[in-house]
């Protein structure tokens, strides 16, 4: 891990992770995320295991990644890479997250088109729905972890609950909910002083 002078955009003295470390971290994220739940894996790797960001930085990156169109988790990888190491970091995280799954999907695609049928058949799809059920739990469990550490006070708690229920249960479109709740949350943050 090279020690570099603190980049101007970082507020605290900090040793940025090497490009190889970023690449390896995102290879492991991309290759572990069977059945979805990528966000859980990203937080686990980037915040919990490696300490490259804190929860608040991760959460702003996550929210901003949803505001930009495109696959959220690829966006999040690019955001984290840019945050930590600029363009090169963005490329390292992007490549780590997408290259191994890309190769795998090309091989699976070639097998499928070559055999004119599903490799693995029904047991694959049963195993898949089991992993899907777990992946949902990983996302919800990540939410609980984040909420226990990150929510201080009634107003942020209400904001979290409103976002979760209006999108996740009532099925309102994410972008409309964000268009309302981000300004509301901004007003609340301006109103209260940091703890």
């Amino acid at each position: 891990m090279p020690t570099r002078p603190t980049p101007p955009h970082l507020a605290v003295p900090y040793t940025a992770p090497s490009l190889a470390a970023l690449f390896r971290g995102f290879v492991s994220i991309g290759m572990s995320s069977f059945g979805g739940g990528l966000t859980a894996w990203v937080r686990r790797e980037v915040v919990q295991r490696r300490g490259w960001m804190d929860d608040q930085q991760f959460l702003s990156g996550y929210a901003l990644s949803q505001l930009v169109p495109g696959a959220t988790n690829v966006n999040l990888a690019v955001f984290i890479g840019t945050h930590l190491r600029g363009v090169a970091g963005a490329l390292a995280c992007f490549a780590g997250l997408t290259a191994p799954p890309l190769l795998i999907i090309l091989v699976l695609g070639a097998l499928y088109f070559g055999m004119h049928g599903m490799p693995g058949g029904t047991s694959i799809s049963v195993a898949l729905s089991g992993m899907g059920a777990v992946a949902i739990g990983l996302n919800l469990g990540t939410g609980i972890r984040l909420a226990r550490r990150g929510i201080r006070g009634v107003v942020p708690g209400l904001i979290t609950a409103t976002v979760a229920l209006s999108i996740g249960v009532a099925g309102f479109p994410l972008i409309k909910v964000l268009a309302i709740m981000i300004p509301v949350s901004l007003l609340a943050a301006l109103w209260t002083r940091p703890a």
């Binding site: 979805g36 966000t39 929860d55 608040q56 930085q57 991760f58 959460l59 702003s60 996550y62 929210a63 901003l64 949803q66 899907g132 992946a135 949902i136 739990g137 990983l138 996302n139 919800l140 990540t142 939410g143 984040l146 909420a147 990150g150 929510i151 942020p156 708690g157 904001i159 979290t160 609950a161 409103t162 976002v163 979760a164 229920l165 209006s166 999108i167 996740g168 249960v169 099925g171 994410l174 964000l178 709740m181 981000i182 949350s185 901004l186 609340a188 943050a189 301006l190 940091p194």
Partner: peptide, 21 residues
């Protein structure tokens, strides 16, 4: 301020993605 504001929204979206799935 924006970071402080986005945190509860981001936590809500984490729950929402699981609930929606």
């Amino acid at each position: 301020v924006v970071e402080r504001a986005l945190a509860p929204v981001g936590i809500g979206m984490t729950f929402a993605s699981g609930l929606a799935l």
